[in-house]
Design a protein around this nucleic acid. Structure first.
Length: 267
DNA sequence: AAAGGGCACAACCGCCGATAT
DNA sequence: AATATCGGCGGTTGTGCCCTT
C-alpha cells in the first residue's frame, strides 16, 4: 500500500528554528547532500518533519542565497515577471538568482503591491485601477519626469518579434502554458518604457503590448535634448522620425535599426 | 515609559502532480 | 490499477520588531 509516511507527526517540534537545529541541518546536508527529505531529520538528529527541513534549507540555509533588501532593479524585474507569470513565485524566483519564492512572495505582498497601487496600477492585472489608459501613461511619466508636460498620441503597430525583446526563458514559460486565455492575458499585461542612451537611464517613451500587437504612446511634447547628449538626441530623433503615428510600423525595423542605443525596459 | 497598531518575514497548511508500492 | 506518500507550490498565519501616540 503506497509509500511509507513522511514522518510521524506526534512529538515533532514546530515553530522557529534554533541555531543548534540550523547547524545540524546545514552540516548534515553539506556533508551528505539531499537524497530523501523524509530521512533527513532522522539522520541529522532533528525532531522536525522532512517537509519542515526542506523549507528551512530552501528558504534560509542554502549557501547560495542572496541576503539583504531587494534592489529597485530586482523589484522592477519581479513586476515585469509577475505581469507575465502571475503568482507563480517559483517561476519568478527562477529568474532571480539567490532569491527564494517565499522571499519574493513576501516582497510582493508587503512592498511591491503598495508601490503599484501608488502608481495607480492594479497589482493583479497590472492595468490602471480605473481602467483609463491615458491616466496610466501619465502615471508612468510622473514616475520618471515630473517636469514635462506630456501629450500622447496612439499608434498601433505590428510586433512580430515582440517576444524576442522579452527574456527567452519567460517566453518559454508562456508557451508552455496550455490555457490560452491565461497565456493571452499574461502577454496583454506587459507595459514598457523605452530607454535611450548608453547608460539606459533616460526614459523617453512608454507604452504597452499585447499578444498580437502593441500600442506605442509617443510623447509629442517630449524634448529629448533635455536629458540626452546631442548625439543621443539626434539618434533618438532619427528613431522617432521612423514612427509614423498614422501608419503601421515594423517592430523589427524601428528597434533593430537602433539596437545599440535603444533598450526596451519592460515595466 | 507603556500601549497599540502596522509591518516584515519565517513557518505552517493544504492542495496537486508525480511516483513508489 | 489502486492507493498513499513525496516533493513542490501558493496562500495564509503567527510572532517579533518598530514606530507612533
Amino acid at each position: 500500500m503506497g509509500r511509507q509516511p513522511c514522518c510521524d507527526k506526534v512529538g515533532l517540534k514546530r515553530g522557529p528554528w534554533t541555531i543548534e537545529e540550523d547547524h545540524k541541518l546545514m552540516s548534515f546536508i553539506l556533508n551528505n547532500g539531499i537524497h530523501c527529505w523524509r530521512m533527513v531529520p532522522k539522520l541529522a538528529g532533528l525532531l522536525r518533519c522532512g517537509k519542515s527541513c526542506r523549507l528551512r534549507w530552501i528558504n534560509y540555509l542554502r549557501p547560495d542565497l542572496k541576503r539583504g533588501a531587494f534592489t529597485e532593479d530586482e523589484e522592477d524585474q519581479i513586476i515585469q515577471l509577475h505581469s507575465l507569470l502571475g503568482n507563480r513565485w517559483s517561476k519568478i524566483a527562477a529568474h532571480l538568482p539567490g532569491r527564494t519564492d517565499n522571499e519574493i512572495k513576501n516582497q510582493w505582498n508587503t512592498r511591491i503591491k503598495k508601490r503599484l497601487k501608488l502608481l495607480g496600477l492594479d497589482p493583479v492585472t497590472h492595468k490602471p485601477i480605473n481602467g483609463n489608459h491615458e491616466e496610466q501613461v501619465v502615471t508612468v511619466d510622473k514616475k520618471t519626469d515630473d517636469q514635462h508636460e506630456i501629450k500622447h498620441s496612439k499608434l498601433t503597430v505590428t510586433s512580430s518579434s515582440m517576444e524576442q525583446e522579452i527574456d527567452d526563458n519567460v517566453m518559454e514559460e508562456i508557451r508552455r502554458t496550455d490555457d490560452d486565455d491565461v497565456k493571452t492575458q499574461q502577454v496583454l499585461n506587459i507595459d514598457y518604457q523605452v530607454l535611450w542612451g548608453n547608460n539606459l537611464n533616460n526614459v523617453v517613451a512608454s507604452g504597452s503590448c499585447s499578444a498580437s500587437s502593441f500600442s506605442w504612446e509617443k510623447s509629442n511634447n517630449y524634448n529629448p535634448s533635455s536629458v540626452l547628449s546631442n548625439d543621443q538626441s539626434n539618434s533618438f530623433q532619427q528613431w522617432i522620425d521612423n514612427v509614423n503615428v498614422d501608419s503601421l510600423l515594423s517592430w523589427d525595423y524601428c528597434f533593430n535599426q537602433q539596437e545599440d542605443n535603444l533598450f526596451l525596459h519592460l515595466d
